[in-house]
Design a protein around this nucleic acid. Structure first.
Lengths: 352, 352
DNA sequence: AATTATTTTGTAAGCGCTTTCAAAAATAGA
DNA sequence: TCTATTTTTGAAAGCGCTTACAAAATAATT
């Protein structure tokens, strides 16, 4: 008798380790049909308490774990949403992913993350990978792919939501920041503090946020009768090097300027570093403002005045949108366009 | 005739948009069997050039895209590897994920990322999610789960690789940093510059890297006949607040100290900030050293001397390990234990 | 107790692909 | 030309689940 038990236990254990138990074994052990086991797994259909208990018991003794692939194939849903970001590193995407993930996980959904590297082919690849993976929805931060492609995609059966991007014709699927206002805010902050000779280090102009920030910058200049000076304009790469290179470029021009607005914080920190290394005392000799309010701005010296981009919140919001639209959760408050705000710190000097 | 073509085109287009074409439609259009279509998809078995061409043509006209879920279910592999990290944000995990992803993507594999939040239940959840997803391998950075659990897991059919962790009995599956040496290096750097009263802000001691760094610290002290002082020891949370709180704690003790080693850079930056806010001039009044060499250390003021943790490289290496073991790629040079190095910057003052 | 309505269960047909095995076709050997 | 090999193809049985649909069991109604 004891020996028998031993054998049974060994068998069960073996099963657990080697070949994961399937629904079939559960149904056999519980003495019910496959359908019934499936029902208790999904607890949507009514199963009597008695049989449900039998099934649950069988599951635990077998250490049963549903095969997500099979479920997904059979049911055509996967309880997971795909995320496409440009990069896995960097504070911006980190915050975004974290926001999305925590909201979804709280709702029992999983995320599948992949990258697009801001290249058209890779972005398409990534999207198609996620579609092939049977994601219930996709939240994408795509930069290289065209609006037309996205509109076409939007006709497909898997809903695609866009982060930090606005596409006409799919407004209800877009979570975006009003970058134009942000750009305006940054430049206005400088102007309000007496600056007139303002340089601008932009981001790659094919990226909508970059070009919109520039638009806001120009509007602020126009409103204050300051002429836009091509010599004080540089297009960077949204990385530290861009800040470096931009500032070097401006200095070479031999045109005086008292401030530089950088289209993101990475470039601002690059510019700050370059300035400091070249004898500038910040912010007295040069005022710098960034954009995004990425975590490290608070640790720069001087601390960086910047424009807040609530990317974590936006991540949460994108997830809520998916929960509402796709998973039919009720009562989530949705907000699609976020307003940037100025974060005042110590990198701007007041002139005169 | 033209009308017919129109109808056909419409049909094809419709198919593409509404229901993704399946292997069945491809086989029909190409006039071959399902098996043959499958063969050209996987181009492993021999198919004559002529039929292969027919199949490829059919695929492109239909815009066929294989269903990864179905493939995975039928073949029991998925060409994707699961990654489990503690958090999606933060420079440490960002670099790690990026390293793994770029290496794998170059080899045509995809990653599925999920999080464990350093909590035992969530880590197990994450692992099981990845197993359920049919990952060909898992690369995990787990902190809360026990060695025993991992050893048990290691008997299962999906291979699990560990980042920044060493577990006896699965050495060949671990990529780790020699944290003890790193801890030693940090403290020794301080001692070499004349410091004797050295405070230590540790990380959560259940995390192996944290406790090993502390071990190295103690070894450096012993080797130089400096007594370990409990009053100058604080266990932080590996976040900025830990640095803050730790330094506040030390100051309250009213025991003199000239330097503090922080078990990671986040805490170091917290400590620096707290010190500056409380009138310390850095590094003259207080020397600080960090650990990890996270991206922003270079932007702190003063720039932070720290110990490099080549986490991006380690990510690459973990991926190479998987490529070698699981996907049978040849000729990849594998290195399992990484040596930390000292990165000298400006946060340490030389005493006397 | 007989009939009807309701709830609980089981049967079986897929989901879109892979893969074994055997048959058919092409090629080589004699 | 005929047989023996080798290469190319197809038929069909899954992979582990879900989900109509129908049958069986139970409860409600008369």
């Amino acid at each position: 008798m004891l020996a028998d038990l031993g054998i049974i236990f060994f068998f069960v254990f073996k099963e657990f380790i080697a070949t994961m138990a399937t629904i079939y074994e559960v149904s056999k052990l519980a003495g019910v049909s496959l359908a019934t086991v499936s029902r208790v797994m999904n607890d949507n259909a009514r199963v009597s308490d008695k049989t449900k208990q039998k099934v649950v018991d069988a599951m635990t003794t077998l250490g049963y774990r549903p095969n997500a692939t099979a479920r997904s194939l059979a049911s055509n849903r996967s309880d997971s949403v795909g995320i496409l970001v440009s990069e896995l590193h960097g504070p911006f995407f980190g915050q975004m992913m974290a926001g999305i993930e925590s909201e979804l996980r709280a709702a029992g959904k999983h995320v599948i993350i992949t990258t697009g590297h801001s290249e058209e082919e890779k972005e398409k690849d990534g999207i198609e990978f996620l579609i092939g993976r049977n994601c219930d929805a996709i939240i994408a931060h795509v930069e290289a792919v065209s609006d037309e492609y996205l509109l076409e995609l939007n006709k497909g059966k898997v809903p695609v939501y866009l982060m930090s991007r606005h596409v006409d014709g799919m407004e209800d699927k877009c979570i975006s920041l009003d970058n134009e206002v942000g750009g305006y805010l940054a430049t206005k902050a400088l102007i309000d503090r007496g600056h007139k000779d303002i340089a601008y280090i932009a981001g790659p102009q094919f990226k909508a946020d970059a070009s919109n920030r520039l638009l806001g910058h120009k509007r602020a200049l126009i409103e204050h009768n300051i002429e836009f000076n091509e010599s004080l304009f540089y297009i960077g790469d949204f990385k530290e090097t861009g800040g470096n290179d931009g500032l070097r470029h401006f200095i070479k021009q031999k045109i005086p300027f008292s401030a530089v607005v950088c289209a993101n914080d990475e470039m601002a920190s690059g510019a700050m570093k370059y300035a400091r290394e070249h004898g500038y005392h910040l912010p007295d000799d040069l005022s710098i403002i960034g954009f995004d309010n990425v975590i490290f701005t608070n640790y720069l010296y001087p601390t960086l005045t910047t424009v807040d981009n609530p990317v974590n919140e936006m991540g949460h919001m994108a997830a809520k949108l998916v929960l509402t639209d796709v998973y039919k959760k009720k009562k989530l408050k949705i907000e699609r366009v976020f307003e940037p705000t100025l974060i005042e710190r110590n990198s701007i000097a007041r002139l005169s």
